[in-house]
Design a protein around this nucleic acid. Sequence first.
DNA 1: ATCATACGGTCATCCTACAACTTCGCAAGA
DNA 2: TCTTGCGAAGTTGTAGGATGACCGTATGAT
Lengths: 241, 241
Amino acid sequence: MKQRSSIIGSVEALPHRVASHLSREIEGGDIIPGARLPTESQLADKFGVSRNVVREAIAQLRADGMIEARQGVGAFVMAPEQRTAIRIDREALKDQRNMEQLFELRSILETESATLAAARCTSDDLDAIKAALDRGEERWEDGSIEADLLFHRAIARATGNGYIYTFISFVCEQIRQSIYYARLTNPLHDLVEVNVAEHVRIYDALAAHDPQAAGEAMRRHIEGAASRVGVELTANINRGK
Amino acid sequence: MKQRSSIIGSVEALPHRVASHLSREIEGGDIIPGARLPTESQLADKFGVSRNVVREAIAQLRADGMIEARQGVGAFVMAPEQRTAIRIDREALKDQRNMEQLFELRSILETESATLAAARCTSDDLDAIKAALDRGEERWEDGSIEADLLFHRAIARATGNGYIYTFISFVCEQIRQSIYYARLTNPLHDLVEVNVAEHVRIYDALAAHDPQAAGEAMRRHIEGAASRVGVELTANINRGK
DNA sequence: ATCATACGGTCATCCTACAACTTCGCAAGA
DNA sequence: TCTTGCGAAGTTGTAGGATGACCGTATGAT
Protein backbone atom coordinates (compact mmCIF):
# COMPACT_ATOMS: atom_id res chain seq x y z
CA MET A 1 0.00 0.00 0.00
CA LYS A 2 1.32 3.41 -0.88
CA GLN A 3 2.15 5.40 2.17
CA ARG A 4 0.07 8.55 2.05
CA SER A 5 2.54 11.29 2.66
CA SER A 6 0.96 12.93 5.66
CA ILE A 7 1.20 16.65 6.06
CA ILE A 8 3.30 16.76 9.16
CA GLY A 9 5.77 14.28 10.49
CA SER A 10 4.60 13.85 14.03
CA VAL A 11 4.61 11.00 16.47
CA GLU A 12 1.00 11.66 17.41
CA ALA A 13 -1.57 9.21 16.21
CA LEU A 14 -3.68 10.28 13.27
CA PRO A 15 -7.08 10.26 14.98
CA HIS A 16 -5.76 12.44 17.75
CA ARG A 17 -4.36 14.92 15.29
CA VAL A 18 -7.63 15.15 13.43
CA ALA A 19 -9.58 15.48 16.68
CA SER A 20 -7.30 18.24 17.91
CA HIS A 21 -7.61 20.09 14.64
CA LEU A 22 -11.39 19.94 14.65
CA SER A 23 -11.48 20.77 18.33
CA ARG A 24 -9.42 23.88 17.79
CA GLU A 25 -11.58 24.93 14.86
CA ILE A 26 -14.67 24.64 17.02
CA GLU A 27 -13.11 26.22 20.06
CA GLY A 28 -11.78 29.05 17.95
CA GLY A 29 -15.21 29.79 16.62
CA ASP A 30 -14.43 28.87 13.02
CA ILE A 31 -17.48 26.65 13.14
CA ILE A 32 -20.35 28.08 15.13
CA PRO A 33 -22.61 25.92 17.30
CA GLY A 34 -25.42 24.40 15.32
CA ALA A 35 -23.46 24.39 12.09
CA ARG A 36 -22.84 21.17 10.23
CA LEU A 37 -19.41 19.67 9.78
CA PRO A 38 -18.22 18.46 6.41
CA THR A 39 -19.10 14.85 5.73
CA GLU A 40 -16.81 12.13 6.93
CA SER A 41 -15.59 11.49 3.41
CA GLN A 42 -14.79 15.15 2.87
CA LEU A 43 -12.88 15.32 6.13
CA ALA A 44 -11.02 12.16 5.19
CA ASP A 45 -9.96 13.75 1.92
CA LYS A 46 -9.12 17.05 3.55
CA PHE A 47 -6.79 15.50 6.10
CA GLY A 48 -5.50 12.84 3.77
CA VAL A 49 -6.56 9.97 5.99
CA SER A 50 -9.05 7.16 5.79
CA ARG A 51 -12.63 7.54 6.82
CA ASN A 52 -11.94 5.19 9.69
CA VAL A 53 -9.52 7.66 11.22
CA VAL A 54 -12.03 10.46 10.88
CA ARG A 55 -14.65 8.38 12.60
CA GLU A 56 -12.38 7.68 15.54
CA ALA A 57 -11.64 11.36 15.85
CA ILE A 58 -15.31 12.22 15.75
CA ALA A 59 -16.01 9.50 18.31
CA GLN A 60 -13.83 11.34 20.79
CA LEU A 61 -15.43 14.71 20.17
CA ARG A 62 -18.83 13.16 20.34
CA ALA A 63 -18.08 11.57 23.68
CA ASP A 64 -17.28 15.03 25.00
CA GLY A 65 -20.57 16.39 23.73
CA MET A 66 -18.69 18.75 21.48
CA ILE A 67 -20.45 17.50 18.39
CA GLU A 68 -23.54 15.44 17.75
CA ALA A 69 -23.88 13.06 14.82
CA ARG A 70 -27.29 12.27 13.39
CA GLN A 71 -27.49 9.28 11.16
CA GLY A 72 -28.43 10.16 7.63
CA VAL A 73 -28.05 13.87 8.23
CA GLY A 74 -24.61 14.85 9.37
CA ALA A 75 -22.54 15.95 12.34
CA PHE A 76 -23.27 19.21 14.11
CA VAL A 77 -21.27 21.18 16.63
CA MET A 78 -22.97 21.75 19.96
CA ALA A 79 -23.02 24.65 22.35
CA PRO A 80 -20.01 24.71 24.65
CA GLU A 81 -22.26 24.71 27.71
CA GLN A 82 -23.63 21.26 27.19
CA ARG A 83 -20.39 19.36 27.14
CA THR A 84 -20.53 16.03 28.86
CA ALA A 85 -16.89 16.18 29.86
CA ILE A 86 -14.39 18.68 31.13
CA ARG A 87 -11.02 18.73 29.49
CA ILE A 88 -8.17 21.14 30.09
CA ASP A 89 -5.88 22.15 27.29
CA ARG A 90 -2.36 21.55 28.52
CA GLU A 91 -1.00 24.02 26.00
CA ALA A 92 -3.09 26.81 27.43
CA LEU A 93 -1.49 26.31 30.82
CA LYS A 94 1.79 27.61 29.49
CA ASP A 95 0.16 30.99 29.71
CA GLN A 96 0.87 32.31 33.16
CA ARG A 97 -2.57 33.84 33.49
CA ASN A 98 -4.34 30.56 32.88
CA MET A 99 -2.15 28.81 35.38
CA GLU A 100 -3.04 31.50 37.87
CA GLN A 101 -6.74 30.94 37.28
CA LEU A 102 -6.39 27.22 37.63
CA PHE A 103 -4.63 27.72 40.94
CA GLU A 104 -7.46 29.95 42.05
CA LEU A 105 -9.95 27.21 41.26
CA ARG A 106 -7.79 24.74 43.12
CA SER A 107 -7.67 27.04 46.10
CA ILE A 108 -11.43 27.20 46.23
CA LEU A 109 -11.88 23.46 46.00
CA GLU A 110 -9.12 22.51 48.40
CA THR A 111 -9.99 25.09 51.01
CA GLU A 112 -13.50 23.80 51.24
CA SER A 113 -12.23 20.25 51.02
CA ALA A 114 -10.14 20.77 54.14
CA THR A 115 -13.02 22.47 55.88
CA LEU A 116 -15.37 19.60 55.21
CA ALA A 117 -12.75 16.98 55.98
CA ALA A 118 -12.07 18.50 59.37
CA ALA A 119 -15.70 18.12 60.28
CA ARG A 120 -16.25 14.69 58.86
CA CYS A 121 -13.03 12.67 58.85
CA THR A 122 -12.91 9.37 60.65
CA SER A 123 -9.87 8.00 62.39
CA ASP A 124 -9.22 5.83 59.36
CA ASP A 125 -9.19 8.92 57.20
CA LEU A 126 -6.75 10.56 59.56
CA ASP A 127 -4.49 7.53 59.41
CA ALA A 128 -4.43 7.67 55.62
CA ILE A 129 -3.64 11.37 55.67
CA LYS A 130 -0.92 10.83 58.23
CA ALA A 131 0.59 8.09 56.13
CA ALA A 132 0.79 10.38 53.11
CA LEU A 133 2.30 13.06 55.29
CA ASP A 134 4.99 10.73 56.58
CA ARG A 135 5.84 9.58 53.11
CA GLY A 136 6.50 13.18 52.17
CA GLU A 137 9.09 13.59 54.87
CA GLU A 138 11.33 10.77 53.80
CA ARG A 139 11.60 12.32 50.40
CA TRP A 140 13.52 11.26 47.33
CA GLU A 141 14.13 13.92 44.77
CA ASP A 142 10.80 13.86 43.00
CA GLY A 143 8.92 11.34 45.04
CA SER A 144 7.94 14.33 47.11
CA ILE A 145 5.60 15.48 44.38
CA GLU A 146 3.80 12.17 44.44
CA ALA A 147 3.55 12.29 48.20
CA ASP A 148 2.14 15.80 47.98
CA LEU A 149 -0.61 14.66 45.65
CA LEU A 150 -1.31 11.70 47.87
CA PHE A 151 -1.74 13.99 50.84
CA HIS A 152 -4.21 16.25 49.09
CA ARG A 153 -6.16 13.37 47.67
CA ALA A 154 -6.39 11.72 51.05
CA ILE A 155 -7.97 14.87 52.44
CA ALA A 156 -10.38 15.10 49.53
CA ARG A 157 -11.39 11.53 50.14
CA ALA A 158 -12.03 12.30 53.77
CA THR A 159 -14.80 14.69 52.75
CA GLY A 160 -16.81 11.62 51.83
CA ASN A 161 -17.80 13.36 48.62
CA GLY A 162 -16.68 11.46 45.54
CA TYR A 163 -17.16 14.38 43.20
CA ILE A 164 -14.96 16.62 45.28
CA TYR A 165 -12.31 13.93 45.20
CA THR A 166 -12.56 13.57 41.45
CA PHE A 167 -12.42 17.28 40.74
CA ILE A 168 -9.51 17.94 43.06
CA SER A 169 -7.55 14.98 41.75
CA PHE A 170 -8.11 16.20 38.25
CA VAL A 171 -7.10 19.79 38.86
CA CYS A 172 -4.04 18.82 40.87
CA GLU A 173 -2.92 16.40 38.22
CA GLN A 174 -3.22 19.02 35.50
CA ILE A 175 -1.14 21.41 37.51
CA ARG A 176 1.43 18.77 38.33
CA GLN A 177 1.87 17.70 34.72
CA SER A 178 2.39 21.22 33.57
CA ILE A 179 4.81 22.10 36.32
CA TYR A 180 6.67 18.86 35.86
CA TYR A 181 7.40 19.49 32.23
CA ALA A 182 8.06 23.18 32.65
CA ARG A 183 11.03 22.83 34.95
CA LEU A 184 13.20 19.77 34.96
CA THR A 185 15.16 21.15 37.85
CA ASN A 186 14.07 19.23 40.87
CA PRO A 187 12.58 21.26 43.67
CA LEU A 188 14.92 22.87 46.12
CA HIS A 189 15.03 20.96 49.33
CA ASP A 190 14.35 23.80 51.68
CA LEU A 191 11.20 24.56 49.74
CA VAL A 192 10.14 20.99 50.15
CA GLU A 193 10.57 21.39 53.87
CA VAL A 194 8.39 24.46 53.87
CA ASN A 195 5.82 22.43 52.02
CA VAL A 196 5.89 19.66 54.57
CA ALA A 197 5.64 22.15 57.39
CA GLU A 198 2.47 23.52 55.89
CA HIS A 199 1.12 20.02 55.54
CA VAL A 200 1.73 19.40 59.20
CA ARG A 201 -0.22 22.51 60.10
CA ILE A 202 -3.15 21.31 58.00
CA TYR A 203 -3.00 17.86 59.50
CA ASP A 204 -3.04 19.22 63.02
CA ALA A 205 -6.17 21.20 62.28
CA LEU A 206 -7.83 18.15 60.77
CA ALA A 207 -6.91 16.00 63.73
CA ALA A 208 -8.36 18.66 66.02
CA HIS A 209 -11.54 18.64 63.93
CA ASP A 210 -11.28 22.39 63.55
CA PRO A 211 -12.86 23.23 60.17
CA GLN A 212 -12.07 26.91 60.31
CA ALA A 213 -8.37 26.36 61.01
CA ALA A 214 -8.07 23.56 58.47
CA GLY A 215 -9.56 25.65 55.71
CA GLU A 216 -7.37 28.59 56.57
CA ALA A 217 -4.23 26.46 56.69
CA MET A 218 -5.08 24.91 53.35
CA ARG A 219 -5.71 28.26 51.76
CA ARG A 220 -2.33 29.51 52.87
CA HIS A 221 -0.71 26.31 51.70
CA ILE A 222 -2.10 26.59 48.19
CA GLU A 223 -1.04 30.20 48.04
CA GLY A 224 2.42 29.17 49.13
CA ALA A 225 2.59 26.31 46.67
CA ALA A 226 1.56 28.66 43.90
CA SER A 227 4.17 31.24 44.71
CA ARG A 228 6.81 28.52 44.93
CA VAL A 229 6.25 27.79 41.25
CA GLY A 230 6.11 31.44 40.36
CA VAL A 231 2.37 32.00 40.42
CA GLU A 232 0.87 34.75 42.53
CA LEU A 233 -2.77 34.49 43.52
CA THR A 234 -3.99 38.03 43.16
CA ALA A 235 -6.74 39.39 45.32
CA ASN A 236 -7.88 36.07 46.61
CA ILE A 237 -10.84 36.98 48.69
CA ASN A 238 -11.85 33.62 49.97
CA ARG A 239 -13.73 34.13 53.19
CA GLY A 240 -13.16 37.85 52.98
CA LYS A 241 -11.56 38.43 56.32
CA MET B 1 -25.06 -8.78 4.94
CA LYS B 2 -26.31 -10.92 7.73
CA GLN B 3 -27.38 -8.82 10.65
CA ARG B 4 -25.35 -9.87 13.67
CA SER B 5 -27.89 -10.46 16.34
CA SER B 6 -26.59 -8.13 19.02
CA ILE B 7 -26.98 -9.01 22.65
CA ILE B 8 -29.20 -6.19 23.72
CA GLY B 9 -31.78 -4.29 21.77
CA SER B 10 -31.04 -0.69 22.61
CA VAL B 11 -31.20 2.56 20.77
CA GLU B 12 -27.71 3.50 21.90
CA ALA B 13 -24.96 3.37 19.36
CA LEU B 14 -22.76 0.31 19.48
CA PRO B 15 -19.44 2.05 20.24
CA HIS B 16 -21.03 3.86 23.14
CA ARG B 17 -22.40 0.66 24.56
CA VAL B 18 -19.03 -1.02 24.35
CA ALA B 19 -17.30 1.99 25.87
CA SER B 20 -19.78 2.11 28.73
CA HIS B 21 -19.34 -1.55 29.38
CA LEU B 22 -15.57 -1.34 29.47
CA SER B 23 -15.74 1.83 31.49
CA ARG B 24 -17.89 0.20 34.11
CA GLU B 25 -15.60 -2.81 34.24
CA ILE B 26 -12.64 -0.56 34.87
CA GLU B 27 -14.48 1.69 37.28
CA GLY B 28 -15.76 -1.32 39.15
CA GLY B 29 -12.27 -2.66 39.61
CA ASP B 30 -12.77 -5.76 37.49
CA ILE B 31 -9.65 -4.74 35.62
CA ILE B 32 -6.98 -3.24 37.79
CA PRO B 33 -4.78 -0.35 36.63
CA GLY B 34 -1.77 -1.54 34.70
CA ALA B 35 -3.48 -4.68 33.50
CA ARG B 36 -3.89 -5.38 29.83
CA LEU B 37 -7.22 -5.46 28.09
CA PRO B 38 -8.19 -8.29 25.79
CA THR B 39 -7.15 -7.71 22.22
CA GLU B 40 -9.40 -5.75 19.92
CA SER B 41 -10.37 -8.92 18.09
CA GLN B 42 -11.26 -10.69 21.30
CA LEU B 43 -13.38 -7.75 22.43
CA ALA B 44 -15.05 -7.67 19.05
CA ASP B 45 -15.97 -11.31 19.39
CA LYS B 46 -17.05 -10.91 22.99
CA PHE B 47 -19.46 -8.08 22.22
CA GLY B 48 -20.51 -9.43 18.89
CA VAL B 49 -19.45 -6.36 16.96
CA SER B 50 -16.79 -5.53 14.44
CA ARG B 51 -13.30 -4.52 15.36
CA ASN B 52 -14.06 -1.06 14.06
CA VAL B 53 -16.70 -0.51 16.69
CA VAL B 54 -14.32 -1.68 19.38
CA ARG B 55 -11.71 0.75 18.13
CA GLU B 56 -14.13 3.66 18.33
CA ALA B 57 -15.04 2.70 21.85
CA ILE B 58 -11.40 2.48 22.83
CA ALA B 59 -10.74 5.82 21.15
CA GLN B 60 -13.16 7.43 23.59
CA LEU B 61 -11.67 5.81 26.65
CA ARG B 62 -8.21 6.65 25.44
CA ALA B 63 -9.13 10.29 25.02
CA ASP B 64 -10.16 10.32 28.66
CA GLY B 65 -6.86 8.84 29.71
CA MET B 66 -8.67 5.84 31.06
CA ILE B 67 -6.67 3.42 28.96
CA GLU B 68 -3.48 3.67 26.96
CA ALA B 69 -2.84 1.71 23.79
CA ARG B 70 0.63 0.79 22.67
CA GLN B 71 1.04 -0.35 19.12
CA GLY B 72 2.18 -3.90 18.83
CA VAL B 73 1.63 -4.56 22.50
CA GLY B 74 -1.90 -3.96 23.65
CA ALA B 75 -4.16 -1.65 25.60
CA PHE B 76 -3.65 -1.03 29.29
CA VAL B 77 -5.88 0.58 31.87
CA MET B 78 -4.42 3.57 33.63
CA ALA B 79 -4.66 4.81 37.19
CA PRO B 80 -7.88 6.72 37.82
CA GLU B 81 -5.93 9.73 39.04
CA GLN B 82 -4.37 10.56 35.74
CA ARG B 83 -7.49 11.00 33.73
CA THR B 84 -7.35 13.79 31.22
CA ALA B 85 -11.06 14.44 31.44
CA ILE B 86 -13.82 14.57 33.99
CA ARG B 87 -17.02 12.80 33.13
CA ILE B 88 -20.09 12.28 35.26
CA ASP B 89 -22.18 9.18 34.93
CA ARG B 90 -25.73 10.30 34.48
CA GLU B 91 -27.00 6.96 35.68
CA ALA B 92 -25.26 7.37 39.00
CA LEU B 93 -27.17 10.60 39.61
CA LYS B 94 -30.38 8.65 39.99
CA ASP B 95 -29.01 7.72 43.38
CA GLN B 96 -30.15 10.39 45.77
CA ARG B 97 -26.87 10.37 47.65
CA ASN B 98 -24.83 11.12 44.57
CA MET B 99 -27.12 13.95 43.64
CA GLU B 100 -26.67 15.30 47.13
CA GLN B 101 -22.92 15.23 46.78
CA LEU B 102 -23.04 16.92 43.41
CA PHE B 103 -25.15 19.67 44.90
CA GLU B 104 -22.60 20.07 47.64
CA LEU B 105 -19.87 20.53 45.08
CA ARG B 106 -22.02 23.02 43.25
CA SER B 107 -22.62 24.91 46.44
CA ILE B 108 -18.90 25.23 47.02
CA LEU B 109 -18.18 26.44 43.51
CA GLU B 110 -21.09 28.82 43.23
CA THR B 111 -20.69 30.34 46.65
CA GLU B 112 -17.12 31.26 45.89
CA SER B 113 -18.12 32.30 42.39
CA ALA B 114 -20.55 34.84 43.79
CA THR B 115 -17.98 36.04 46.30
CA LEU B 116 -15.38 36.64 43.63
CA ALA B 117 -17.87 38.13 41.21
CA ALA B 118 -19.01 40.66 43.77
CA ALA B 119 -15.46 41.92 44.13
CA ARG B 120 -14.54 41.90 40.47
CA CYS B 121 -17.59 42.39 38.30
CA THR B 122 -17.66 45.29 35.88
CA SER B 123 -20.76 47.20 34.94
CA ASP B 124 -20.94 45.14 31.75
CA ASP B 125 -20.98 42.00 33.83
CA LEU B 126 -23.76 43.40 35.97
CA ASP B 127 -25.77 44.24 32.87
CA ALA B 128 -25.45 40.68 31.63
CA ILE B 129 -26.50 39.30 34.98
CA LYS B 130 -29.43 41.69 35.15
CA ALA B 131 -30.52 40.65 31.67
CA ALA B 132 -30.55 37.00 32.69
CA LEU B 133 -32.46 37.92 35.80
CA ASP B 134 -35.13 39.79 33.84
CA ARG B 135 -35.53 36.94 31.43
CA GLY B 136 -36.32 34.71 34.36
CA GLU B 137 -39.22 36.87 35.46
CA GLU B 138 -41.12 36.74 32.22
CA ARG B 139 -41.10 33.01 32.39
CA TRP B 140 -42.65 30.46 30.09
CA GLU B 141 -43.21 27.06 31.54
CA ASP B 142 -39.74 25.66 31.22
CA GLY B 143 -37.86 28.60 29.82
CA SER B 144 -37.34 29.49 33.43
CA ILE B 145 -34.82 26.70 33.75
CA GLU B 146 -32.81 28.09 30.89
CA ALA B 147 -32.92 31.54 32.40
CA ASP B 148 -31.76 30.14 35.69
CA LEU B 149 -28.71 28.59 34.09
CA LEU B 150 -28.04 31.81 32.21
CA PHE B 151 -28.07 33.71 35.47
CA HIS B 152 -25.60 31.42 37.17
CA ARG B 153 -23.32 31.32 34.17
CA ALA B 154 -23.32 35.07 33.91
CA ILE B 155 -22.11 35.31 37.49
CA ALA B 156 -19.44 32.70 36.90
CA ARG B 157 -18.26 34.66 33.90
CA ALA B 158 -18.03 37.77 36.01
CA THR B 159 -15.36 36.13 38.12
CA GLY B 160 -13.06 36.56 35.17
CA ASN B 161 -11.87 33.01 35.70
CA GLY B 162 -12.54 30.78 32.71
CA TYR B 163 -12.04 27.56 34.62
CA ILE B 164 -14.58 28.51 37.23
CA TYR B 165 -17.02 29.25 34.44
CA THR B 166 -16.35 25.92 32.77
CA PHE B 167 -16.67 23.88 35.94
CA ILE B 168 -19.84 25.59 37.10
CA SER B 169 -21.46 25.33 33.68
CA PHE B 170 -20.62 21.68 33.62
CA VAL B 171 -21.94 20.85 37.05
CA CYS B 172 -25.12 22.86 36.58
CA GLU B 173 -25.79 21.22 33.26
CA GLN B 174 -25.39 17.75 34.73
CA ILE B 175 -27.83 18.58 37.47
CA ARG B 176 -30.29 20.15 35.07
CA GLN B 177 -30.30 17.14 32.73
CA SER B 178 -30.93 14.76 35.54
CA ILE B 179 -33.67 16.84 37.09
CA TYR B 180 -35.24 17.45 33.72
CA TYR B 181 -35.62 13.79 32.93
CA ALA B 182 -36.59 12.81 36.45
CA ARG B 183 -39.76 14.87 36.64
CA LEU B 184 -41.67 15.82 33.54
CA THR B 185 -44.02 17.86 35.63
CA ASN B 186 -43.11 21.47 35.08
CA PRO B 187 -42.04 23.41 38.12
CA LEU B 188 -44.73 24.90 40.28
CA HIS B 189 -45.05 28.58 39.67
CA ASP B 190 -44.82 29.75 43.23
CA LEU B 191 -41.53 27.88 43.55
CA VAL B 192 -40.27 29.68 40.48
CA GLU B 193 -41.12 32.95 42.17
CA VAL B 194 -39.16 31.97 45.23
CA ASN B 195 -36.28 31.17 42.96
CA VAL B 196 -36.42 34.56 41.29
CA ALA B 197 -36.63 36.28 44.65
CA GLU B 198 -33.41 34.60 45.70
CA HIS B 199 -31.81 35.64 42.46
CA VAL B 200 -32.75 39.23 43.15
CA ARG B 201 -31.11 39.05 46.54
CA ILE B 202 -27.92 37.76 44.97
CA TYR B 203 -27.97 40.41 42.31
CA ASP B 204 -28.38 43.17 44.85
CA ALA B 205 -25.34 41.96 46.73
CA LEU B 206 -23.32 41.80 43.54
CA ALA B 207 -24.38 45.28 42.50
CA ALA B 208 -23.37 46.53 45.94
CA HIS B 209 -20.00 44.80 45.51
CA ASP B 210 -20.48 43.04 48.81
CA PRO B 211 -18.63 39.71 48.53
CA GLN B 212 -19.70 38.43 51.91
CA ALA B 213 -23.38 39.03 51.27
CA ALA B 214 -23.22 37.69 47.74
CA GLY B 215 -21.61 34.47 48.84
CA GLU B 216 -24.08 34.04 51.65
CA ALA B 217 -27.07 34.72 49.39
CA MET B 218 -25.78 32.24 46.84
CA ARG B 219 -25.21 29.56 49.43
CA ARG B 220 -28.77 29.91 50.64
CA HIS B 221 -30.03 29.90 47.09
CA ILE B 222 -28.31 26.63 46.21
CA GLU B 223 -29.59 25.10 49.40
CA GLY B 224 -33.08 26.24 48.49
CA ALA B 225 -32.79 25.00 44.93
CA ALA B 226 -31.65 21.64 46.21
CA SER B 227 -34.50 21.28 48.65
CA ARG B 228 -36.96 22.29 45.94
CA VAL B 229 -35.99 19.20 43.99
CA GLY B 230 -36.00 17.02 47.04
CA VAL B 231 -32.33 17.13 47.99
CA GLU B 232 -31.25 18.17 51.42
CA LEU B 233 -27.72 19.44 51.91
CA THR B 234 -26.70 17.90 55.19
CA ALA B 235 -24.29 19.61 57.51
CA ASN B 236 -23.04 22.07 54.99
CA ILE B 237 -20.43 23.94 56.90
CA ASN B 238 -19.33 26.44 54.32
CA ARG B 239 -17.88 29.44 56.15
CA GLY B 240 -18.64 27.79 59.42
CA LYS B 241 -20.88 30.32 61.05
C1' DA C 1 -53.26 21.00 -2.87
C1' DT C 2 -52.14 16.81 -0.39
C1' DC C 3 -50.18 12.69 0.44
C1' DA C 4 -47.42 8.59 -0.67
C1' DT C 5 -43.33 7.15 -2.75
C1' DA C 6 -38.67 7.10 -4.77
C1' DC C 7 -34.18 8.79 -4.63
C1' DG C 8 -29.83 10.55 -3.20
C1' DG C 9 -26.96 11.80 0.57
C1' DT C 10 -25.03 10.67 5.11
C1' DC C 11 -23.88 8.17 9.03
C1' DA C 12 -23.41 3.20 11.09
C1' DT C 13 -21.46 -1.05 10.74
C1' DC C 14 -18.96 -4.70 8.76
C1' DC C 15 -15.17 -6.93 6.37
C1' DT C 16 -10.55 -7.68 4.57
C1' DA C 17 -5.98 -6.47 3.83
C1' DC C 18 -1.80 -4.54 4.93
C1' DA C 19 1.65 -1.59 7.55
C1' DA C 20 4.09 -0.60 11.81
C1' DC C 21 5.57 -2.05 15.95
C1' DT C 22 6.82 -5.05 19.96
C1' DT C 23 8.02 -9.23 22.05
C1' DC C 24 10.01 -13.60 22.30
C1' DG C 25 12.54 -17.52 20.98
C1' DC C 26 15.94 -19.72 18.38
C1' DA C 27 20.08 -20.26 16.07
C1' DA C 28 24.58 -18.84 14.57
C1' DG C 29 28.82 -17.03 15.95
C1' DA C 30 32.33 -15.33 19.33
C1' DT D 1 28.49 -19.98 27.80
C1' DC D 2 27.20 -15.69 26.39
C1' DT D 3 26.02 -12.48 22.97
C1' DT D 4 24.05 -11.03 18.85
C1' DG D 5 21.07 -11.09 15.04
C1' DC D 6 17.04 -12.41 12.83
C1' DG D 7 12.64 -14.11 12.01
C1' DA D 8 7.92 -15.56 13.54
C1' DA D 9 3.89 -14.41 15.81
C1' DG D 10 0.85 -11.33 17.82
C1' DT D 11 -1.18 -6.59 18.32
C1' DT D 12 -2.43 -2.07 17.23
C1' DG D 13 -2.75 1.44 13.30
C1' DT D 14 -4.53 2.64 8.79
C1' DA D 15 -6.69 2.00 4.29
C1' DG D 16 -10.50 1.13 1.38
C1' DG D 17 -14.72 -0.78 -0.07
C1' DA D 18 -19.42 -2.67 0.62
C1' DT D 19 -23.82 -2.60 2.64
C1' DG D 20 -27.55 -1.32 5.97
C1' DA D 21 -30.24 2.29 8.31
C1' DC D 22 -31.94 6.64 8.33
C1' DC D 23 -33.20 11.37 6.87
C1' DG D 24 -34.64 15.05 3.82
C1' DT D 25 -36.39 16.32 -0.38
C1' DA D 26 -38.21 16.06 -4.78
C1' DT D 27 -41.29 13.63 -7.67
C1' DG D 28 -45.53 11.96 -9.06
C1' DA D 29 -50.24 10.25 -8.29
C1' DT D 30 -54.61 11.22 -6.36
